[in-house]
Write a protein that binds this DNA or RNA. Structure first.
Lengths: 206, 206
DNA sequence: TAGATTGTTAATCGATTAACAATC
DNA sequence: TAGATTGTTAATCGATTAACAATC
């Protein structure tokens, strides 16, 4: 399996990873495809089929070992290393992101936080000192950061994205409502809970 | 088209809605399938095909009118009404969610905020007074809330979800890392930026 | 008219699912 | 052995894409 995964397979494997990480924390040793299916809303047959493309990880009649499946999926997704990310915006959302254990749990370190407000520069957010926006390019280059998270108001988002991209960032997580224009070699992931909610409501109402 | 949309079509239409909402705010009158494609990473042919299943909304050689396409998609997704949601957790993330314009923009009102910390009860968050957790059931029922947002630590998430579900909530947005068990008629949407990031990194690294 | 973009067809590919033998 | 669950097949369905006529 030296081939690149398809987008669909990579997305599903990521979700299995999430479930397995939590299952391990809950002290589970084994898990069945049916249990993973309940938490991910992905069909159990699909899960078994996805996994069996890479090897025989399960035991018939028993299920999968949480630990070994976790290791196998990490190997497939190549997510074993540590990754440094930059956070732009030290407001309420930035503070929530910086203080959440959600990134650290997966080997992702917030290596820099930026804010345009001089009063916030030098303060600490989730253990990281807030830097001025002016320093963005230097710090992002120095620390070889390729991922930027935008936790800024919509009107600052495009500008912040351009600065990140100019400094070498290739993956932007956009938590503002703004649409972001970037060069084609940069991936933008926009998160919009309201839109997801409208989608969920559709299935509730019909 | 009285039929229920497939999951895929509803998800894509929601994303077009997001792009159109922002395009309108930016003062655009018209938009082409190619432009929508750039912002959503959905193929332009797929977009035209999705839309043409419901009518001829575009003008050849010109594109789509932002306003009328917005209205058509809202009609299809039946997202014209106002919706009340409940937010559990008035911490950093809860504060970020409550103060964001992202929900209001789509007709979604945060009608109640709950926190277990007595010191927070009675304070205002995004214009809504924080209520005690004890009042959750009464308030959720009174205000006919069917959507709950969990902005609590992982260890409180399952308990909060059960209380929401007990009070009649059918859609839970989970911003904790915890896996949530619910009855089968309740939809759980778990958001995990770290997992999304690992997925994005896979395509960056390969 | 010339240029642009939709709407639609046709062909291909991946996702989904039921069913079930293999086997722990 | 009996029960459970994987791994795999086969059939179906929806997504994706290129191509292009229609038409603004």
């Amino acid at each position: 399996m030296a081939d690149r995964l398809t987008v669909g397979v990579a997305a599903r494997l990521s979700r299995y990873l999430q479930v397995l990480t939590q299952a391990k924390k809950m002290g589970k040793d084994r898990i069945s495809s049916q249990e993973i299916a309940e938490y991910t809303n992905i069909n159990a047959t699909q899960i078994r089929r996805d996994l069996s493309a890479f090897g025989r990880f399960g035991k018939r009649g028993v299920g999968y070992s949480v630990d070994s499946l976790l290791a196998e999926i990490r190997k497939i997704l190549r997510t074993q290393g540590q990754h440094n990310i930059a956070l732009v915006g030290a407001g309420r959302l930035g503070a929530a992101i910086a203080s959440s254990p959600i990134f650290a749990e997966h080997g992702i370190t917030i290596a820099a936080v930026f804010d345009r407000d001089a009063a916030k520069v030098g303060t600490s957010l989730g253990g990281v000192s807030v830097s001025a926006l002016d320093e963005l390019e230097d710090i992002v280059r120095d620390r070889s950061i390729v991922v930027g998270v935008l936790a800024v108001p919509a009107e600052s988002a495009q500008d912040a994205a351009e600065r990140l991209v100019g400094a070498g960032v290739k993956i932007v997580f956009n938590y503002s409502q703004a649409l972001i224009d970037t060069p084609s070699d940069v991936q933008v992931h926009t998160s919009n809970p309201a839109v997801e909610l409208l989608y969920a409501l559709y299935f509730h109402l019909t």
